[in-house]
């Protein structure tokens, strides 16, 4: 059954969209990522114009992450204090990101920046996570306890503006989550994702937050960042396709509920190893796209006028 998408201006199979939504929603619930980093490229492959894919995906991630966030909040897995500090940084960062997006789009390099940015970032994150989680899994098999992050004392603990985050059992400088939020906000606006895929490892490895609250707290921040991104994309570019978003989120909200249940059944390091593998698969796909000789040497795009 085909349906016409009014903003994307194309016909797509309804069941394909529902299935894509469910699949990505499952992952989003399991790992606490919005799923935008998977869905946006999938939509572009389907033929949705990249700008519409980015705007619509932001809208869909609002629903998926709100559903996941509420499920985690009921289990008490959200550090609101930490989430708010991350969010403050995130809002400032996304404002800068939206501006960068316009500039890059006008000089025709936005695709390259998106792909290169993803590739470099995901490769680093995926490798770090995989190495760490495998090491932890091996330690456990040998009957030894893995080293706990919170006990370590590094340069990170010497920064000013210290704040106490009870839920995360941390006493660290507020500058740290603010900076992380800011960087994630910039990336989120340019890459058209909530930024969970970048934020989760940063929360675990840089802040040293316990894995149990990381997912819920990240989802809390994602809800707000993607809501503001959706509004900005709709207001500035008219690139939010509400019909496409509705179909995707119908599948996604259901998927996310089952995903968060599966997530609680797995151990933290198992979850991280799986997520790391997923990240590396996406990285490999992106890298291939950048390096392989393209089928078509030329690309056509409408001329963008200054908004």
């Amino acid at each position: 059954m085909q349906i016409y998408l009014p903003i994307a201006e194309m016909s797509v199979n309804v069941f394909l969209l529902l299935g894509m939504g469910a699949g990505v929603g499952l992952l989003s619930g399991m790992f606490g990522v919005g799923g935008g980093f998977l869905m946006t490229p999938l939509l572009i492959i389907l033929g949705v114009p990249p700008a519409v894919a980015v705007g619509t995906e932001a809208n869909q991630v609002v629903a998926a992450s709100a559903s996941g966030f509420l499920a985690h909040m009921r289990r008490g897995n959200v550090d609101f204090r930490m989430g708010s500090v991350l969010l403050a940084g995130g809002m400032a960062g996304s404002a800068l990101g939206v501006w960068l997006f316009f500039v890059l789009r006008q000089i025709g390099q936005i695709d390259l920046v998106i792909e290169l940015g993803y590739t470099v970032f995901l490769a680093i994150i995926g490798t770090l996570m995989l190495v760490e989680s495998i090491r932890t899994l091996l330690h456990r098999e040998h009957g030894r306890a893995a080293p706990r992050g919170a006990g370590r004392h590094t340069w990170v603990h010497g920064l000013p503006l210290k704040m106490r985050f009870r839920k995360s059992k941390l006493y660290i400088s507020a500058l740290l989550p603010l900076t992380i939020g800011f960087v994630v906000g910039v990336l989120a606006a340019i890459l058209g994702v909530g930024g969970g895929i970048v934020m989760l490892p940063a929360m675990i490895y840089i802040l040293g937050m316990p894995t149990s609250v990381v997912v819920g707290t990240s989802l809390f921040q994602i809800v707000f960042v993607t809501a503001s991104a959706t509004f900005l994309h709709a207001y500035n570019n008219q690139t939010v396709d509400i019909v496409l978003a509705a179909l995707l989120l119908l599948g996604a909200v259901v998927g996310a509920q089952y995903g968060s249940k599966i997530g609680t059944l797995l151990r933290g390091e198992q979850l991280r190893a799986l997520l790391a593998l997923l990240v590396l698969v996406v990285t490999a796909k992106l890298l291939y796209g950048l390096v392989a000789t393209p089928e078509e040497m030329f690309t056509l795009s409408p001329i963008f006028r200054t908004p």
Binding site: A66, S67, A227, T230, A234, V240, V254
Partner: peptide, 17 residues
């Protein structure tokens, strides 16, 4: 339009949970 899109998505997420 943007506000409707956001509210709609939040409602859908809440409803599902």
């Amino acid at each position: 339009y943007g506000a409707v899109a956001v509210v709609f998505a939040l409602a859908a997420g809440w409803f599902a949970s």
